[in-house]
Design a binder for these strands. Sequence first.
DNA 1: TGAAGAACTGAACACCTATTCATGCGATCT
DNA 2: AGATCGCATGAATAGGTGTTCAGTTCTTCA
Lengths: 224, 224
Amino acid sequence: MVYRRTHQVVKRLAARRSAILAAARDAAADGGMAAVQIAPVAIRANVAAGTVYRYFPSKADLISELIADVSRDELAAIRRAADAAPGPSSALAAAVTTVAVHVLSQRKLAWGILAEPVDVDVTASRLASRREISGEIGARIEAAVRAGHLPAQDTALAATALLGALHESLVGPLAPDNLDDPAKLRDAVQTVTLLALRAVGVMDARARGLVVQAVLPAKALVGA
Amino acid sequence: MVYRRTHQVVKRLAARRSAILAAARDAAADGGMAAVQIAPVAIRANVAAGTVYRYFPSKADLISELIADVSRDELAAIRRAADAAPGPSSALAAAVTTVAVHVLSQRKLAWGILAEPVDVDVTASRLASRREISGEIGARIEAAVRAGHLPAQDTALAATALLGALHESLVGPLAPDNLDDPAKLRDAVQTVTLLALRAVGVMDARARGLVVQAVLPAKALVGA
DNA sequence: TGAAGAACTGAACACCTATTCATGCGATCT
DNA sequence: AGATCGCATGAATAGGTGTTCAGTTCTTCA
């Protein structure tokens, strides 16, 4: 008596899993990681609390997958933006701008993914998330160095520092709070991108040019 | 029947308060904020758990004071280093180097103060701490701008970004882990200081010179 | 010295939310 | 249809730590 799962059932199971993850993501986007509690998430996903545990072994696993999920999207967006740029320096500028725009348009989610206190241990997935993003930025810096546009440097450290600068200045507790105004938001993105490019050794004048170019395509994302 | 507190008693009370704070600081330096729990801290301070509550209304208050304390020391160190420098640019370099050296020499404590998840709400004191330090760095940037050494810019945002870069690259989860080696440590300090100076607009060649000068006096601190 | 009040103690309490599990329901296959 | 198994339910449980408080010890002052 073999009970195979019907295709229909398989689909429903997958849909539920997605629904739970989506509910968690919504909760995080709304109220930060603190709002990602089993019972509320279950309600959002239209399931019972116990059901969550049929899909995720623990809250830590749920949040870890959430982090991985968001991170994957972020990485894809960075790659897309950078690959569309005409050269290594532009690619770096585009990557940085993309990160800036993304974190700004989902500040609570970004803060939750990156640094908000959580009651379970998610250091591993946070670490992985950072590694991925930082690695990508590092690769873009490296490419620019190889192209002779930047001085030789420790690209991994530089990438990490850039991300720290972006995060702290845009979603950290000292971030300006009037970034809902699109103009202010664009200013902030430009400012930090400029800072970042100069940090890795782009000359001021050239950096300003790159920033202007990078912000153009990224502006479309701001609306999303 | 007026019962005045004897000088001796006043002194003992103050000593206990300090002892509790010191115990909390030790605990944080040892095992991060997670180790700052009432019962263990009380033991370290040689008092009972209940006694802690005669000095601090809640755990949140205890940790808030701890953060303020560390922050005060940090700010003093930054000012001392910057004021001893010969000019605005050197002062900025000295300030940045000081922060770098400090966080590196007490990484767990720094991480706890800055970003480690805590089960109570300490956002207010963390915010205040960041404001103070960032304000000081911002003032140094501003001075350098006024002296004509740096391009005009949003100094508050720049200061915040610099601190984010330092923290993320030196004590964040992606920080290099072999920084116990003094040589590697010095390299890391130099690298991030260079990054920071270039970020605010110091030209590469000049930044390298400033870094070398700034690291000399700061090296003494590494031993401490 | 002794009465009265402060300071201290630490075991018991309270609270909160992740996790479990006995029960019911619905889906699969003969 | 009916037998059987997996999935879903949600109320009850568990565990850990901040906080309280009745009792004890220490300090002050007449």
